[in-house]
Amino acid sequence: MVVSFFLSGIIMWLIGLRSPVKLLLVSALVPLGMWIVFYKFLAVNIPMGVLEVLRDMVDKI
């Protein structure tokens, strides 16, 4: 998850996206949204790295 956050950010930066809002929205929300889809609906447990706390939060909800 952390890797996809940075990877997408770097790609967007490389191809000329400079708006911090768009950068943050795409690089943070897309991986997070996809993780929720995979984790909650498709039972695929994607490693979260340092963001492991998010899994506990989602589990509690």
């Binding site: 996809s4 990877l7 997408s8 950010g9 790609i11 967007m12 191809i15 000329g16 996206l17 768009k22 795409v26 690089s27 897309v30 991986p31 996809m34 993780w35 995979f38 498709l42 695929v44 447990n45 994607i46 490693p47």
Partner: peptide, 24 residues
């Protein structure tokens, strides 16, 4: 826009590849 579409394709693709065998 392509500059937003490409990273999204990459993320979805990599997560999709992982989900088959749940193997990095």
């Amino acid at each position: 826009e392509k500059r937003m579409l490409y990273p999204i394709i990459l993320i979805v693709s990599l997560l999709g590849a992982f989900s088959i065998n749940k193997n990095a």
